[in-house]
Design a protein around this nucleic acid. Sequence first.
DNA 1: CAGTGGTCTAGACCACAAG
DNA 2: TTGTGGTCTAGACCACTGA
Lengths: 243, 243
Amino acid sequence: MTSEKDGTLHSRILADLEGKILSGTWPPGHRLPFEVDLAVHYGCSRMTANKVLTQLARAGLIERRKKSGSFVAQPVAQAAVLEIHDIEAEVRSLNLSYAFDLKQQKARKASAADRQRLDLSAGATVLDLTCLHRAGTRPFCLEQRLINLDTVAEAASADFSKTAPGAWLISRVPWNAAEHRIQAFSASAEISAALEIPRNAACLVIERRTWGASGPVTFVRFTYPGDRHALVARFQPGESPAG
Amino acid sequence: MTSEKDGTLHSRILADLEGKILSGTWPPGHRLPFEVDLAVHYGCSRMTANKVLTQLARAGLIERRKKSGSFVAQPVAQAAVLEIHDIEAEVRSLNLSYAFDLKQQKARKASAADRQRLDLSAGATVLDLTCLHRAGTRPFCLEQRLINLDTVAEAASADFSKTAPGAWLISRVPWNAAEHRIQAFSASAEISAALEIPRNAACLVIERRTWGASGPVTFVRFTYPGDRHALVARFQPGESPAG
DNA sequence: CAGTGGTCTAGACCACAAG
DNA sequence: TTGTGGTCTAGACCACTGA
């Protein structure tokens, strides 16, 4: 019964079922009781039982099939939530002072490479930015960014020497879709100079493409000294990553 | 009005509200109509309106406060779902043939380093595995793994020359928690020999610690040639990553 | 065809926090 | 104090799908 008296009714039922699944009492493939039976067993209405099963299904712990019932799912893909923080917040959480230098800011016609990176049509103009984020006095991360001036025209006249482009953009284009790409590269001459690391040192590179409601917004590449930086992602079954 | 006629009632309402938020019609901080008003406006019951708002809140698009109402949230952390696939599936999705070589398999007392990696107490025994995953004939990824024999005793007598350890484990310890760590490293002598890449070439390294219901299960380090491999993560606001 | 999940309702009570 | 979200119910109809 795992009777826990805390929380709401359906969260208690949820915890009970989760325990049975995660502990292996109900192995993958096992059929759960029907909604009606759960409702009787826990003394609740069918809607409440349904809510619990729906939540378990959303979390990927069970699979529901009409006419057959609900079954404990086979664990498949290892999915994990990767939190890509704001760099300033990231630095400050290390108890280091944060600073950034704007190293370059230039508006220009989009080159072929730009258009591919930003998913643009010909003739578009972009703002090309480079800035260095510092933790304490050490270089922390090099940011190379393109901003689509067709979508975010105000960027052309913005002052990025005080406000980092990332923070500025989030206030202009609050909600957007993004695609991240994580790779390892050897430091080029430019990178090694900027980050003050040896030539060819391994670097962790995160590229992000961002789209807003009105089209492509920005492409940005963050380059971190590889041995000093790690991305961490956790996975906890049953907890919806969004929760 | 974004009126879409497909799907259920609450999914249509959801799409409508999502559109207003994502397009900026309702900017961050804007107060949404109350549940009762939404119910009236869409001609549904309050429960249905509640379901929609609850879902928006779970997705992080709105924030709900008692007595005050529901508000469009400030976009904060860039969270993305990182899918860490099974290596065999990953290779096959590239239309390449998959193979792996078991290069080492040795049971031993856990060293101090092992105990730290696997979160073990003294005196534990581990199985130390090394295997190379191939795509076509080229090395694709080197897997270095420790398995906690106190938790998964059957591993000691398992045959890993046919079944890759990852696939074997998932059938034994179906549901587990995991922590991933992603870094860039220069190839050591061992790595460069195994992956057939130059010494000090940049490598993408993914480390995973896994816990089951009965304790630490395994620690694994995947090393990929950095310039040939990328992790991709997507983020779509409004969609729950678990969905 | 029958039983399951999917959805929706109209109404209810409660806890909580803002005014 | 009062209005809001949070939760729960008993019952209903539908769509799908497996037997």
